[in-house]
Structure formats: structure tokens, C-alpha cells
Design a protein around this nucleic acid. Structure first.
Lengths: 191, 191, 191, 191
DNA sequence: AATGAATGAGCTTTCATTCAT
DNA sequence: GATGAATGAAAGCTCATTCAT
């Protein structure tokens, strides 16, 4: 008895997700180039060839991985945004960010690994810049409404602080006083 | 009659430098893995095999490249440090950093590309962490002498600001107001 | 629909055998080092890469070749042993050996080529010494039961005669009176 | 002051001998293919390029090595031959052979390694066969003069015994009763 | 005679991808 | 949808050999 279209769709979706998930884990651990498609297939519990039913190739999978990253961040930031009141949004987003950072370092390692690769940015640079701009605009709006002067520059500073902090934390998580730094940043921008 | 040791030394030094330089340019442009040893040799104007007279292999060359990067930064920062008076050192180092950034984006792209690659940090992580710690200590000393309270945390914030700013500038150099941001940071930490 | 495990097993076994066979022929003809993996693949009628699905590398293939050699000899000697009565076993084994020698010189050329290579004996020396010892013990038992005095030394002499004869035959098969020599040895040890 | 022709000749001869000697040692230890010309040059204490003033290439050096081997054997056998009386020559040559074997295993390992290599025998097979024939003829003459019947076959048996014994000794020198075997062979052929 | 920097062909090996089943 | 045998381009690397000095 052949499967129904619906069942097939479910299988497809689950398999796709599993492949992306495996790729994320392995890319984060080893980097993009050193991770072979076979490693991904094995980790996902499928055969080497099946990957090509779901993705056009390794590069296509990479794109999906990056989109997945941005999707995860979007969801988290949207939730933080919607769940917070005006003037508290920056704090909410920062809180979410640093919570995620502590919970899932690999995710952020992957994220920064991807965005510093020339080959990857050549493909994904534009969507990423757009995504960045949106978040920055949100900061600007919040800072302006909070009555800060020069909110454009302030937003950039805030963005730099967050990114820089993430990177330094990742360099040596055991010894970095993430909480103290996070609090200091929050105080500075949400007074 | 064979060349003198001195002549050979000159040849060797020039060739080594040329190879490292070519590798830096190509790694910065394409990333480490996508850059082949043949590409490097061709760019350096030498044969494919000669690279292996000078380096044990591609990984060994990468190490040399990273050391070269740190050497360049050390030289620049040392000069800034020695050429400035106490209380002005942070400003001097920041000035040097942002000047270098504008003059040679590729260099910084390479630098951040290297330090976000798991495979690379597995080799170079320790020296890099050490190097980072030294710079941070310099910041702490300066901030303490300037009478700032909590200089340890402040130093981390400063470090984050600089790193984050560099990365955002690199994401979209044409539209990033580097000077304005740099000035703002300087004002904040050298009041 | 994918192949069944059984089908795959058949394919694998056939391919493995074909690769080993090709390697034996080419190693025998050219020696180990001068035979390239490409030559083996071409002779086996497969692509250059497929060899690496079946063997870990060239050295691993060499090991398989040697094991195959010993397996062939074991099978032949076992048959000779089981098919002969006590006191006739030495003659049976010698007969088998010299028959094989005339039928397949390359096989023996390969065998002696392998066991005189230092790099190869570094890997295969131990199993080979063990294999040799077993055959010698069989000789000793037979000679003792035949009532010869000093069967240990006699066994060594017999072994030397057989090996030395094989090597001299291989040096110039057209002119070597193998049969006469073989008969003489048989007479000497099975009187 | 330039060197005299004579001095040059001396230097040349010494250098040639040193290169051959180094090659013998390294070929014996590693085999022909795995030994690089650089290893030989280094062992001989000369530069990589200089070897090509003395030999046309690696293969040419190999030829010289084999000729050197045969020369060493010739010298030893000639001495044994000339220093012994008729009817004692086989004993003398065997004595010399087994003495040399115990004193310099590597030499014999090299010798058998070379003569079992197809690539080498393709070049050196003919001279070697000739050399072998001469020794065998000497055996025949001696055996005939000693009144043995069928001296041609006896000579082949003797040759086989000697070669086979050498090879088995080399396989496991520590445990092989060389002296006992040698005595037994001597008794058998010089009664 | 002597050096060692330089060459480049060709090696083993890897791996994204295809395809018969 | 699923398998894994098969492909072949291209990678890193070695090494006999050449050549300017």
C-alpha cells in the first residue's frame, strides 16, 4: 500500500529537518569544508545518496542551514519583542540573546563561523545584511523613543557590544564573566 | 661555485615572505579550505612543489600566516603604545586599529575568518587567547590608572566594542559610519 | 528500490576479489612501489576511487594480497596433506609445490618479492614467520615418523632445498631442469 | 691553486664509493623505492645535486650497487677459491658464504631483495644469470673431480641448499641454527 | 667539484555527486 | 523514498632531477 501524499510530506519534512540539524551540529563542530556529506548523512541516519533528494548539494544545504539559523533567531527575537513592552524591548532581546548563548554555544559558534567566511558571505551576504539592518532599526526605534540622543550611532554601539561580547565569550566561555558584562550593557542602554 | 650561505638566506627569506603574503591574500579572499596550495604557488610565482621546501604543509603555512598576522598587530600596537603617553594609550591603540581597518580590510577579514574556524582554533586557540589576554590587560591597566571604577569589566566592554565594530564595518564597509562610531567609543573611554 | 544486502554482498565480494587479483598480477609484474593504484583500478576495470571503498589504502591492499597468497598456499597444502597418507605427505606437498610453480610462476615471483622487501616484512613478517614455522613442523613430524635421525635439521635442509630450487627456477625457467631436481629431492627425503 | 687531475680522481673515487656505500645501507634498510636520493646524499654527506655528477640517476646508482655486491662476492669467492686446494673448494666457498652471512646480514638481505625485484631483474637479470652460472660451473667441476655421479644436478641441489639456507636464516636470524645446518651441508657434499 | 633552490610530473587519496536497483 | 556502489575531478604532497651560482 503506497503512502499517501500527506504521509510523504511528513516524512520529507522530518528528513529535511534532521539533515539540517545534523549539518548544523557537524558544521559547528568541524567547520563547513571539513564536514563531509557522508558524515552528515550518517549523523542523520540516512544513506549518502538520499541527501540529494532533499537538497541540491552541499552548498544548498549550507544555505538552508544559515536560513535555519536566522529563522531560529527571528523566532526568538520575535517572541522577546512581542512579549515585552516598549522601552523594555532592548533588554528583552539582550536577555534572550545571552540566554541562548549560554544554552547553546555551538549555535553561535556556527553563526559567526558562517558570517566570517568569504565564500558563504558571497552567497548569503545580502540576506544577512538585510536581517542585520532590521534588528538595528529596531534598536534605533527603541533608543529614539527612550529619548536618547543620536540613536543611530547608539544602536551601532549596542550592536557592537552584543556581537563583540558573544565572540569573546565563545573564545573562552569558562572564564568570561558573561553575566556581569551583560548587566553592564543593559544598564548602559536601558537607563 | 655554490651560493654563499648568506645569499641562500636572502633567497629563502624572500621566498618565505612571498608565500606567506600570497597565502594571506588568497585565504582572505576565499577562505582557508577553498584555497589550494597550487593557487598559492601560482600567486607567489613559484612552482607547486617549492612551497614544501619552506613549509611542512598547508596547515603549517596557515600557522605561519596567523603568526604573521599577530606579528603585524603586535608591531602596530607596540608602536602606538610606545608613541603615546599614559592615559592616551587606549586612544592610540584604537586609532591605530581603525586606521588599519580602513587601509586593509582584507587583513581583518582574514583575522576574523581564522578565529571563528573550529579547525583553526583547535591549532591556534591557545596562542590567540594569550595574545588577547595581553591586550585586555593593557586596557585594564590604563583604565585603572585613569581612575575608572571596575576596570576589568570596562576593559571587556571596550574590547567588545572594538571587535564588534570591526565586524560590522566589514559586513558593509561602504555604509558604516566608522569614524563616528570610533569617536564615540574614544570619548566614552577616554573622558 | 535499493539492492538487497545479499546483492550488495555479492557485488562487494566480486569487486574485492577482482581488485586483489589485479593487484597480484601487477605487483608480480612490476613490484609493489612501481605499481600505481590507478594501474590496479584500470586493470580491475573500475574507477580510481572505488579501490578506497574496498581497501583503506595501497598498503592495506598489499596486506590483503599477501593474505590471499597464504590462503592459496594453505588451501593447496591442506589438500595435499589430507589427500595423502602418512609418510607420503612430504612428497605430496613437494609435488603440489612444484606443480604450482610450473603452472603459475608469477605467483611465486610475487611471493618471494614480498618476503624480501624490508618495508613489507616490517608489516607482514610476523604472520609469515608463523606460517613458515607451521610448515616446518609438519616436515619435522613426517621425518620423525619416518625414523630419520635429527629431523629438526633435516626439515630445515628440506625447506632450504625447496625454497632455493624455486628461486633458481624463477631466475631462468627455460633452462632449469626442475623435474630432475624435484625428483632428486624427493628421493633423498622419502627413501 | 687548482687540484691536480690525480687529486681530482681520488676525490671522485672516494665520493663514488661513499655514495654507493650509503645507497647499499639505505636500500638494505628500506628497499629501493622508499629510499630517496636525498636520503642517500645526506647519508653520504654530500648535497642532493652532487650525486648527479657521479651517477646518471637513481637507477644508474642501483646498477652500481648491484655490481658492487657482485664484486664483493667475487672477491670473497676468489680468495676462498685461490686459498684452497682442489676438493676443498666447495667447503671453502661455503665457509666464506656463511661467515659473511653472519657478519653482514644486511648485505645479503639487500642482495636477495634486489634479485627478487622484477624491475631490477629486467635490467640486471642477464649479468646475474651469468654470474650464477659461473659459480654453478665451479661446483660442477669440483663435484665431478670428487667423483660424484650426476654432478650437474648435485650442483643445483647444493646451490639451492645454500640460497635457501641464507633466506631462512635472514627471516629469523636469532633462532636459526645456522652452524648446524652449514655443517650438515658441508658433510653431505664434501664426503 | 659543489650547493641547494627550484621544477613539475605524477603519486595516493578524498569526496561531492550520480545512478542502477 | 531509499540504498550504497560507482565515478572522476581535484586535492595535498613527494621526489627524481635540473640549473644558476
Amino acid at each position: 500500500m503506497p503512502r499517501t501524499t500527506e504521509q510523504n510530506e511528513k516524512i520529507r519534512e522530518a528528513a529535511r529537518a534532521e539533515i539540517i540539524n545534523s549539518a548544523m551540529i557537524l558544521f559547528a563542530k568541524n567547520g563547513y569544508a571539513p564536514t563531509t556529506t557522508r558524515m552528515i548523512a550518517q549523523h542523520a541516519g540516512i544513506s549518502a545518496g538520499l541527501m540529494y533528494h532533499y537538497f541540491d548539494g552541499k552548498e544548498s544545504l549550507l544555505l538552508a542551514v544559515f536560513e535555519n539559523c536566522m529563522g531560529i533567531l527571528d523566532a526568538a527575537f520575535s517572541e522577546a519583542y512581542l512579549g515585552s513592552r516598549p522601552h523594555e524591548r532592548i533588554a528583552a532581546i539582550m536577555g534572550t540573546t545571552f540566554d541562548m548563548l549560554e544554552r547553546d554555544r555551538e549555535f553561535w559558534g556556527l553563526f559567526y563561523m558562517l558570517r566570517t567566511q568569504p565564500a558563504i558571505m558571497a552567497i548569503l551576504g545580502e540576506p544577512f545584511r538585510h536581517w542585520t539592518a532590521q534588528l538595528r532599526d529596531l534598536f534605533i526605534t527603541e533608543l529614539r523613543e527612550a529619548g536618547r540622543e543620536d540613536p543611530e550611532i547608539e544602536a551601532l554601539l549596542l550592536y557592537s557590544l552584543i556581537e563583540g561580547t558573544i565572540q569573546q565569550y565563545l573564545l573562552d566561555p569558562a572564564n568570561y564573566p558573561l553575566e556581569a558584562v551583560a548587566n553592564r550593557i543593559k544598564n548602559q542602554f536601558t537607563s
